[in-house]
Structure formats: structure tokens, C-alpha cells
């Protein structure tokens, strides 16, 4: 059964390359991906602080639509959407009073939310449903020149974790890209916050958080930062161009994990939306097989 795809608002704007690379990668792997018809905004973190029941109700509309269409698991690449959709499932499941209120609101539009469709993150889908072995077998280009700093951010690990591994030290992306021949660097702040929407409301705080994230990546000599979230990508991409943050070093391009994976699977840079990145990606995927560097040295 094809996965039901919930892109979320960001993937139609600042995160357009995430949308393109999601479709490219799933297409390349032959996985069905059907966009949820007429989905609405998940409410993000902003709605919850104004009106709680409304926030849950509009998120539940998406869950109800996914159930009504009878599609497969709901796949939400944006971390905020992923967290919100899952939080709604959890809260509605645990708080009967809230669930009754939300059910009454949904009934206004003849919808019903039974919480029967699981909400999943594409990283977890690719790791568990496809697996690194099959992904490595499907590889057509070498990404051995990439030294990614794998950055998970907050919301796919907290409050509900998407991956099976340790929520404090997730290794899914490291495992994935190491299996594809890249050299992931050790990146201690992998689960730290980028500041999210503080970028708009309290810029100083977000700048400081991103400065640390970029600094760590530079220190470990990473040549790209790989994220799973459009907000993280946006913040790091915009701030990473500022000279005062980079501190004399070279700006580090910020990719979505689907973009780097897509390069390994032989998707073109245009298909993956690499051109949408503000910091140009200079590292290239090369044809397989790669000659080991050591051989070149001897010759």
C-alpha cells in the first residue's frame, strides 16, 4: 500500500527542496507516495499557545482525512508536523474529555478521527521498511567525498521519538550514510535545538544556538550539515552565510537527508532541489566504483 504523504506548509515554500527530494527518493526506490488530498496546516508550535482545542482539532482533521481515504501510513517529513500529528494522536488517546471535544468539532465537517493511521517520519520509514542493505544495493553514485554532520534537531526525537535508537544519541543517519560510503563526522550537538521560530521572535537567542551548531560542524571539518527539518535547514542556511557566524571559515551547505540519499541513489541535483540551497554545495557525487584514495597516492 502506498504511503500517504503529508508535506506540510514549509515544504511548499522555504523547504521546497525537501519536497522534491522526498518524491525523487521514494520514486527511485519504487515506494508509493500519495499526497494527502486537501490537507491543512498542522498548527505548528504557534497554535498550541493560543487555542489548545482548536490546535488539536485542525491537526486531527488531517488524521481523519488520512483514515477516510483509507491510505497507508501517514509520512510527515517536517519535524514540527511529525511531532504535532503524533502529539495529537497521543493526547487524544490519553485524554477522553479532549477527544470528545475534538470529535464534536470534527463532526461539523462530517469527519471522524479513530486514530487508526500511524504517523511516521521518512527517516524511520527508510531505515525500517527499506533498510540500509537495500538502500546500499540501490546505490548508483558514490558519496565518499561527503563528510556530513548529521543533525537531528528536536522534534523527531522529542516528545515522541521517531527512531528506535537512543533519543539522546540517535545514530540512524550516521548508520545510513556510513553504509553508503560517506564519512559522517562525530557531531555532539546532534539533538540540540536550532531555535526554531525564535529566529523571528527572539533572533539573538536563535543566532547563538545556530552559531554553536555551525561551530561544531566546522571544528569537526564537516563539509555539509544534514538535517531532517525545514526549520533547522532554513535557520542554518540563512545564518550560515553570515560572516560573523562562520568566523573566517567556509560556509557549510545544509542539506536534507533525502538530498544526500538521493545523490547516492543517482537522482540529479535538479530533481533533488540542490539549487534551492542558499549556500552552494560544492561537493559532488561521483560515479561508482570509486578508486580508493590510497591507490592514487602510491601512483
Amino acid at each position: 500500500m502506498p504511503y500517504t504523504y503529508y508535506p506540510g506548509c514549509s515544504l511548499h515554500a522555504t523547504g521546497v527542496s525537501y519536497d522534491k527530494s522526498m518524491r525523487a527518493v521514494f520514486g527511485k526506490l519504487g515506494l508509493g507516495l500519495e499526497e494527502l488530498d486537501d490537507w491543512n496546516c498542522c498548527g505548528a508550535t504557534s497554535y498550541m499557545s493560543v487555542k489548545e482545542t482548536v490546535a488539536f482539532a485542525i491537526t486531527a482533521r488531517n488524521l481523519a482525512l488520512a483514515e477516510k481515504n483509507g491510505g497507508g501510513d501517514l509520512v510527515a517529513p517536517c519535524s514540527a508536523c511529525y511531532a504535532l500529528l503524533n502529539k495529537t494522536r497521543k493526547f487524544l488517546g490519553e485524554a477522553p474529555a479532549l477527544r470528545a471535544d475534538v470529535a464534536e468539532a470534527l463532526a461539523e465537517d462530517d469527519l471522524e478521527c479513530r486514530l487508526s493511521v500511524p504517523v511516521r517520519h521518512p527517516l524511520e520509514v527508510l531505515m525500517n521498511d527499506v533498510g540500509t542493505e537495500r538502500l546500499a544495493a540501490a546505490q548508483t553514485r558514490s558519496i565518499a567525498d561527503f563528510r556530513p554532520a548529521c543533525y537531528y534537531g528536536c522534534q523527531i526525537l522529542r516528545p515522541q521519538r521517531a527512531m528506535d535508537d537512543d533519543p539522546e544519541v540517535p545514530m540512524a543517519m550516521e548508520d545510513l550514510f556510513a553504509a553508503l560510503g560517506a564519512e559522517p563526522v562525530d557531531y555532539p550537538p546532534r539533538t540540540r535545538c536550532c531555535g526554531g521560530m525564535l529566529m523571528a521572535t527572539a533572533e539573538e537567542v536563535a543566532v547563538k544556538l545556530c552559531e554553536e551548531l555551525i561551530g561544531w560542524a566546522q571544528e569537526r571539518d564537516a563539509n555539509c550539515i544534514v538535517t531532517v527539518c525545514p526549520l533547522c535547514q532554513g535557520n542554518l542556511d540563512i545564518l550560515g552565510r553570515r560572516a560573523e557566524l562562520v568566523g573566517g571559515g567556509r560556509p557549510i551547505p545544509v542539506l536534507y537527508f533525502t538530498q544526500l540519499l538521493g545523490l547516492a541513489l543517482g537522482c540529479t541535483r535538479r530533481e533533488l532541489g540542490i539549487q534551492h540551497g542558499l549556500i552552494p554545495l560544492t561537493v559532488e557525487a561521483r560515479p561508482l566504483p570509486v578508486e580508493p584514495a590510497a591507490v592514487g597516492m602510491e601512483a
Binding site: N40, T53, L106, E108
Partner: peptide, 14 residues
Amino acid sequence: EGLRRIIAKAETFD
């Protein structure tokens, strides 16, 4: 229209 009805109804519970 449906979404607005949902929002209007849910607002009464907040």
C-alpha cells in the same frame, strides 16, 4: 468552509 466550521466549534471548548 469545513475547516472553519471545525475551528469555530473547537473554539467554544477553549
